[in-house]
Design a protein around this nucleic acid. Structure first.
Lengths: 229, 229
DNA sequence: ACAAAATTAGACAGTCTTGTCTAATTCGTC
DNA sequence: GACGAATTAGACAAGACTGTCTAATTTTGT
């Protein structure tokens, strides 16, 4: 039932541990019930602390909500940048490497607990906290899209892809790679590994049909490497 | 503030008019506040009826919610099928026609009032009403995706596109065409006409680079000639 | 082991909401 | 115009939740 840090039977020890446990439980409850439906008592129980401790740490429900979104944004950003750092700059097998990257992106950033929660909170409550989610937009997509676009630009510069606008290409890449998961995402579900792989494979193939250079560069490089060996 | 049918100052006349007015107001309030936060009094005021009338028509909050989702699903489906019927089966200018279709799809089905509301309700409350949204999945995407895929299949059969799997192509088409609107959608916003057109244009161009026949064939021929040289 | 700080359980007032009920009023239709 | 059905305003009980307070207990640092 409870995900992550704190089973109720083992109350978290230490000030910081409690803070994290509260934020985690709050994320879960806010997601399930929405801001209005979220019950502080339930959050407290789920975090394994008393209600008063929740108030001691975070003031009131609204401040707690803000803390949750900030925390999730930060953690998701970390994950996304970590994943972007695994982007195949010098691909051995472009198709396979891009599929692998797409799958990692999905599993580690979009389908994991933090990603699901943050996405749902954004969708659900963005109109109630415009400033908060404007902040998210800057620190989240505002940082990650350019980072990803830069990697595609490098791939194009290296002769692996024929791309006009790396920003557009980056967005289209993710759009393609997630094309078959949209309904599942809408319903808040988590796709099976198999579906993720399938969608990524189809997406990358289409992406390469549009932007690939017919493997000429890669093939020739591989051949020259073989020749050198 | 209020969209659509009933300004409070002109109470809706007639039984059916009231029912519609209530469902419309409820859709709006459920979206803004979430199920738990939605206030029946507010729905009544916004619908221009008394609270008791809401209960007379729909029983209780939960039944009202179900009625809202069913109504929105129905109306959205109608709109989507109407738009699909404008799909360019015998395109004059394939790129322009597909862009036009994509823009219509966005404006009439995704960005309009019903589309926005239904999407938000699905995202927000699907976990609370699994059966209801399973029903939506069947009657909505379950009907519309095959219909769209069939049009792409016809286009391929007519020699305009080189498509392996029309279902995949249909999903990738929408994924591409909306690729640049994702963040706006997440935040519940409505993109400007200009952004919709931009995203559709970029998306269709990429789609045709991947699946277009004449150009693709020509390009591939040129590339293979270069590779052979 | 001791003192300060943090945490706990529980009570509490105040507020809000849902769904029902009633009596008065308005609407649609003949 | 008159009758029955629909609608309205308002009161109401029952329940839920937030945020505060207190007194007792536990944890932490020294």
């Amino acid at each position: 039932m409870k995900l992550g840090v704190s089973p109720d039977t083992f109350p978290p020890r230490g000030h910081e541990a409690k803070r994290i446990s509260i934020v985690d439980a709050a994320a879960s409850v806010f997601c399930r019930e929405g801001f209005a439906g979220a019950n502080i008592d339930l959050i407290a129980v789920e975090a394994g602390v008393s209600r008063q401790t929740v108030y001691n740490h975070h003031g009131d429900k609204e401040k707690l909500f803000v803390a949750v979104v900030r925390d999730l944004t930060e953690r998701c950003n970390t994950g996304i940048f970590a994943t972007i750092s695994t982007f195949p700059d010098q691909p051995r097998d472009l198709e396979a490497d891009l599929i692998g990257f797409a799958v990692r992106m999905n599993r580690n950033c979009i389908c994991n607990r933090d990603g699901k929660f943050l996405r749902k909170l954004i969708q659900t409550e963005s109109e109630r906290y415009p400033e908060l989610f404007a902040e998210w937009r800057e620190r989240g997509p505002g940082q990650t899209w350019p980072a990803l676009a830069a990697r595609f630009a490098r791939l194009a510069y290296g002769g692996y892809l024929a791309i006009d606008d790396p920003d557009v290409a980056a967005r289209q890449f993710l759009g393609l790679v997630n094309a078959e998961l949209q309904t599942t995402f809408m319903l808040g579900g988590t796709p099976q590994d198999e579906e993720v792989l399938q969608s990524a494979t189809n997406g990358v193939r289409t992406f390469l049909r549009a932007f690939g250079k017919r493997k000429a560069a890669a093939t020739m490089e591989k051949q020259s490497m073989l020749a050198n060996a």
